[in-house]
Design a protein around this nucleic acid. Structure first.
Lengths: 206, 206
DNA sequence: TCACAAATGTTTCCAATGGAAATATACTGC
DNA sequence: GCAGTATATTTCCATTGGAAACATTTGTGA
């Protein structure tokens, strides 16, 4: 009963690993994190729900690979305007990229910061996450917000910057905006640290 | 076969609604958000897994009630030192309370900010969340960080404060601390806004 | 007091999920 | 060619949330 002109579906997929990650991304963006089941991903590729086990061990392993891929994209978003001449512009772009990524891929963003879903013991994931964090580190290094005299200024600067932008993105993804709810830009809530200050069109007083 | 001295378990619980919420809290703190199933909560109280439906409609309804209760506790944490004479001390205490709540009840904290798990259409939840947010609003109102000249300064001050403290708490709950990982205090990463500056023992340079 | 409705719980059943185990098929090195 | 490994399927199972039918208690109005 097999049509001879169309070759039968091969038993082996050939690049199932990559296909599963790609399928997961599509499901995430199209139907959300709650729809991202092992069976749904497998069905999207056209394999049985136990096939992924050979490549990822378990659902958590697959989600971990998806999250790692997400961190690569995340970093790309932050480096969007990395070639700009103006360092302030680069800094602004990185912050906005962090938030824009979360807005464009809210479910992927949630997955990436859910240790219950993906394993941060996996080197591929931790390396990707660290690379993404590195962009923030570079920015924080150029920051002179700290007049306290406390030690560990660099680490505290990073944590301040990360907390602010991550909190902003997280709350936005969760749909939690202040009561009256108009959309804000991350650069509009940043204090003036001697960076992000001369905000061109938006801040004529800089 | 029923022992006549011990009355048989009554068919009706009497205060199942409250008991289920309390059971959920205990499971959250003891076994985590992933263990918080409808059946687990019901079993903890000693009723069938369909009994909660009469009071909460569905699992999501029950989780919503638990989250609402969580926001009340959250607010209590933030108001821990609300009677202090020093306004700076009150502000510090509120920030630290926000973070301390997340550290003490990480799974409850995650639940409270998971719109996929609990319904923010429920007035009980939104009211509790708003009350908690009100504490932050009061603090932000006393903040003079904004020299930008942009409009909506109050709302942006709130969002800045909320983003920073929520991001810090969220990252901490997710186990994401900067690479070298020593624990920081939220007040040690806050910029000097003319508040939180004179940090007594920790900041002799204030 | 009694009939009857409403509220509260239970039992039973069902579909969906992730995973384990056994099996089938294809590739690879010798 | 042929054994051994890698890849994928089929089958089975425990767990989960929910729907439906039924049981028990409580409340209400004549």
């Amino acid at each position: 009963m097999q049509d001879e002109t169309t070759p039968p579906k091969p038993y082996h997929h050939g690049s199932l690993k990559e296909a599963l990650v790609a399928a997961g991304m599509e499901i995430l963006d199209a139907r959300g994190l709650e729809a991202l089941s092992l069976r749904a991903i497998a069905a999207h590729v056209g394999v049985s729900h136990t096939a992924p086990k050979n490549h990822f061990g378990s659902l958590k392993g697959l989600l971990t690979a998806i999250a790692a891929n997400g961190f690569h994209r995340h970093r790309t978003y932050m480096l969007a305007d990395a070639n700009s001449d103006d360092p302030k512009q680069r800094q602004r772009a990185a912050m906005q990229g962090y938030v824009r990524f979360a807005a464009d891929h809210p479910h992927l963003f949630r997955l990436m910061f859910s240790p219950a879903l993906c394993s941060f013991d996996d080197p591929a994931l931790t390396n990707a996450a660290r690379a993404s964090y590195g962009v923030l580190q570079d920015i924080a290094a150029g920051l002179d917000w700290d007049k306290s005299g406390l030690p560990d200024g660099a680490r505290r600067a990073e944590m301040m910057l990360w907390s602010m932008v991550h909190g902003f993105a997280t709350l936005q993804v969760a749909g939690m905006t202040p009561p009256d709810g108009a959309m804000l830009d991350i650069t509009d809530i940043m204090p003036n640290f001697g960076f992000l200050a001369q905000n061109g069109t938006q801040n004529p007083h800089g």
